[in-house]
Design a protein around this nucleic acid. Structure first.
Lengths: 327, 327
DNA sequence: CTGTTAGCGCCTTCAC
DNA sequence: GTGAAGGCGCTAACAG
C-alpha cells in the first residue's frame, strides 16, 4: 500500500479506501489504485487486517481421525460452507485422545481462530478446555460426538431412530435373534443406540436377550473376540447390528472364518455407510447413512452465524435424521 | 499484557520479556508475571505476533481429495511433522480442479501462510498461481503429484520402480499376459508407470502387447468399459496391474460379473495399498505401498526447512522407494 | 535488570 | 473527495 501511495502520489488512506471500494472515493483514483495494485500483484496483509478487525477468518476443526471417511466427508462439508464466506479451515486430529484434543484447542486459541467446530474425542472426560475457548470469545459448535453446553450449538444424528429403523427392518425380514455390537459405554451415542434397538424389539414384542448386547472398546481384537463369543452362544444371532461399518467388517470376517455365509446364514446392518462397502462382494444388507457432509456443512454455518452475530446467542440443537439404505 | 503490566505496576515490555523467559529479567518479576498471566488465563495474541515477526506459523496444504485415504494419511504425516514446531495446518481440497486450486493458493497467500505443501490437481495445466506464492516469499513443497520447479523441493515415489517390481513379481508367478490399467496421460506418473511395466516385461523378454495398455480417465464408467474390453480380447490378460486400488476394485467387479475368480482366473496388483483392502474376501494379491504418511512428513519438514532458512536455497528432490506388499 | 520508543500493515475516526 | 493521526497487541532496538 505504501508503495502504491508513493507511486501515485496519494496517501495511504486513499489507497486503503480505494481498495475497499469505499463510496466516497474518486472514481478515477479508485481505478488507478486498483489497476496498480493488480500490476504490483498486491495482496493485502491479512495479518494486519486481523489485528485491526480482531478477526482472522480462520476457523478451527478438531476431530478424531481424518482417515475415517465419515470425518473427511464432514470436513468437506465444513470447507464448502465456509470457503466462500472467506474463511479458511485449520484442521487438527485428536486421535480420540483427550490430551491431544486439549492442546489442539489451546493451539487454535493461540492461533486466533474465530470459531471452532469439534467432534469430541472418545477419550475426553472433562470440558474445561472448551470453556477456555469460550472465555476467549471463541464460539464452538459440536457435531456428531457432541456435548451439550449452555451456549454452544450442536448438530448430531438421531442414533436412536437409526437403530430403531435398522432393527425394525431386520425383524420385518423375519429375523428375530438380533445382536447389537455397540460402542463403548462412555459415548452418549451408545446409549441411544441401545435405546432404539430395545424399542424396536419391544414394538415387535421380542424379548431382549442381554447376551446379544455387546459393548466394544474400538480395538480390533476386542471386536473379533466378542463376535466369536456371540457365535458361540447356544442360540447364536441371525443378524447383527454393528455401530460402525468397520466393526461390521471385522465381525463378518469372524463369521466367514466359521463358514457362515454373509447375507444368508447371518445378516449385517451397520452405521455409517462407507462408500467402499459397495466394493464388497457381500456388503451389509443395509447401512444407516448419517450424512456427514451435511452435518459438517450445518455445523459450519451455525458457527459462522455465531461468529458474525455474537450478540444474539441463539443456541441451536440440530438433529439430523439418519436414513436406512438397503442394498 | 497491558492489564498485567498495570496490576503489577511494571511496563509492558517487562511483561513481554518475562513471558518469553528473556534471560535478563528478574526472577521474581518473571515469576510474578507468569503467575498472574496464568491466573488471568492470558493467551498471547498471535495475530499481533505474526504482524511483528512476519510469520503466521500457519502452513497451507492443497491436495485433491481428503476422502482418499492416501491424502488423509499424508495430511497426518504433515500434521505430525509440523505440530510440535508450533505450526498449524490450513487444508484446502482442489478436487483435481484447476480453478479451485488457483483460488486455494490465492486464499492461502491472503491468509498469510508461511509456506505451502501441494499435491497438484490433475486438472492443472499452468503454474502461474504457484509462482505467485513464490513471488510473495512463500516457499512451496510439492509431494506425490509433483511438478519440478527451480526453487521448490518435492517428494514423490518412484513409480517406475514400483511398476517394475509389480510386473516382475507377476511374471515370476508364471503370468505373462499382463495388462496395465494406467492413469490419464496428462499425469507424469502415468509415463513412469508405463516405463516400469515395459522394462519388467523386457527383462523377461516378453513382448509388449499394446492392447494390454489402457489409459483411464478416472471415471468409474470408463474403467468398467475398458476393463470389459480387455476381457474381450482374443487373448485376455491373466493379470492386471492397476494404477490405484480403487481402479482395481472396479475392474475386479467386472471380472466377477463374468464369472472370473479373482486370484485364480485373474490376478490383480495395484498401487496404494488402502487399508480396507484387508477387508476384502479377495484382495489384490499384491499392492504397491507408497508411504503417504512418510511422504507428507518429509514434505512438511522440507517446507519448514525452507521457511526457517530462506537464505540457503537448497532445493531437494526426495524420491521414496515404494514397496511391493504381497498378501 | 527495566523502561522508552518506534513500528509491523492496515483501518478509521476526525478534520479539511 | 482526500489526508493526518492514532491505534490494534506485541516485539526489539536503544537507553538507562
Amino acid at each position: 500500500m505504501k508503495e502504491i501511495a508513493r507511486q501515485l502520489g496519494i496517501s495511504i488512506t486513499t489507497v486503503s479506501r480505494a481498495l475497499q471500494n469505499h463510496p466516497r472515493i474518486g472514481l478515477r483514483t479508485r481505478e488507478k489504485v486498483q489497476e496498480l495494485a493488480e500490476r504490483l500483484n498486491y495482496i493485502p496483509n491479512s495479518t494486519a487486517i486481523s489485528l485491526k478487525k480482531r478477526r482472522t477468518f480462520n476457523i478451527g476443526v478438531v476431530l478424531p481421525y481424518l482417515t475415517e471417511q465419515f470425518f473427511s466427508l464432514a470436513i468437506t462439508g465444513i470447507e464448502d460452507a465456509t470457503i466462500d464466506k472467506g474463511y479458511s479451515v485449520l484442521v487438527v486430529q485428536s486421535r480420540n485422545d483427550f490430551e491431544r484434543e486439549r492442546t489442539a484447542i489451546r493451539s487454535l486459541i493461540r492461533h486466533g481462530v474465530d470459531g471452532i467446530v469439534v467432534s469430541v474425542a472418545s477419550g475426553t472426560h472433562t470440558y474445561r478446555h472448551f470453556d477456555r475457548a469460550n472465555e476467549h470469545g471463541i464460539p464452538i459448535v459440536y457435531f456428531d460426538r457432541v456435548i451439550k453446553r449452555l451456549h454452544s450449538s450442536c448438530v448430531y444424528s438421531d442414533i436412536t431412530s437409526g437403530a430403531f429403523e435398522a432393527v425394525d427392518f431386520l425383524v420385518q425380514k423375519g429375523l428375530t435373534n438380533i445382536a447389537l455390537l455397540n460402542g463403548p459405554m462412555t459415548l452418549q451415542a451408545t446409549d441411544e443406540r441401545l435405546n432404539g434397538y430395545a424399542r424396536a424389539l419391544q414394538k415387535h414384542e421380542i424379548p431382549v436377550n442381554r447376551h446379544y448386547i455387546v459393548g466394544l472398546n474400538l480395538t480390533r481384537e476386542d471386536t473379533l473376540k466378542k463376535t466369536a463369543a456371540l457365535l458361540d452362544l447356544p442360540e447364536p444371532p441371525q443378524a447383527i447390528l454393528a455401530f460402525h461399518d468397520y466393526i461390521a467388517l471385522d465381525a463378518m470376517e469372524v463369521c466367514r472364518q466359521r463358514g457362515l455365509r454373509i447375507n444368508e446364514d447371518i445378516f449385517f446392518v451397520s452405521f455409517s455407510n462407507l462408500s467402499f462397502c459397495s466394493y464388497l462382494e457381500h456388503p451389509p444388507i443395509a447401512s444407516i447413512e448419517q450424512f456427514p457432509y451435511e452435518m459438517g456443512e450445518k455445523a459450519a454455518s451455525l458457527l459462522i452465524e455465531a461468529i458474525e452475530h455474537p450478540d444474539q446467542q441463539t443456541r441451536q440443537e440440530v438433529v439430523m435424521q439418519p436414513q436406512l439404505v438397503v442394498r
